[in-house]
């Protein structure tokens, strides 16, 4: 698992010692309301999820740190069955900011810029995918500012992003987060 650093944030691979904090974030209504499942996650489920991650090369999960403090989580998953991250043609990106001080803040773009750069430049994926509940207007706006385009509407919105659209959409925000 690779750590990523840039745009004033660090993405550290999730460690055993992070699990309880992440479980509490994930179970909090502020975060879970935008997840596909609102079911409470037990400590046993969380541990089983983490154990599976250790031998799973189709996904990667990070703890987002700003000023050395954890503020949320980010993840990527290969979209198509049988593909690993290293050869995925499309990758789904997920993120939440648990620290309310930074929710909706410009710093919330930083982890996504890091992840997207990693996917397009190092993993050489062709397309990124984001899935957003149609009630989550903030996430839709957020993704559109990154260059995503809505491909499918319904209870869940499916958005896709090409490297070209991403580069064009993020010139200014990268400048502000790279000083």
């Amino acid at each position: 698992m690779k750590a990523l650093c840039g745009y004033n944030v660090a993405l550290n691979p999730i460690q055993q010692t992070d699990l309880e904090m992440i479980r509490q974030w994930r179970n909090s209504p502020a975060v879970s309301q935008f997840m596909l499942s609102q079911e409470d996650i037990s400590t046993e489920q969380q541990q089983a999820w983490f154990n599976k991650l250790q031998r799973d090369n189709t996904q990667q999960h990070w703890l987002i740190c700003y000023k050395q403090q954890p503020i949320g989580c980010a993840n990527i998953k290969a979209c198509y069955q049988g593909q690993q991250l290293s050869n995925a043609q499309a990758i789904e990106v997920g993120l939440y900011i648990a620290d309310e001080r930074y929710r909706g803040n410009i710093v919330a773009f930083a982890p996504t810029l890091l992840v997207n750069d990693y996917c397009f430049e190092e993993l050489a994926t062709k397309q990124l995918l984001a899935v957003v509940k149609n009630s989550n207007q903030a996430a839709l706006n957020y993704n559109e500012k990154l260059g995503y385009k809505v491909q499918q509407r319904g209870e869940l919105l499916k958005l896709t992003l090409t490297a070209k659209d991403y580069q064009q959409a993020t010139v200014t925000i990268k400048q502000f987060l790279s000083r």
Binding site: Y7, N8, N105, I106, L177, R179
Partner: peptide
């Protein structure tokens, strides 16, 4: 002035 990234983030 030229603000640094921390200032841009903190300008709440």
């Amino acid at each position: 002035v030229m603000l640094d990234t921390d200032d841009i983030i903190d300008m709440s």
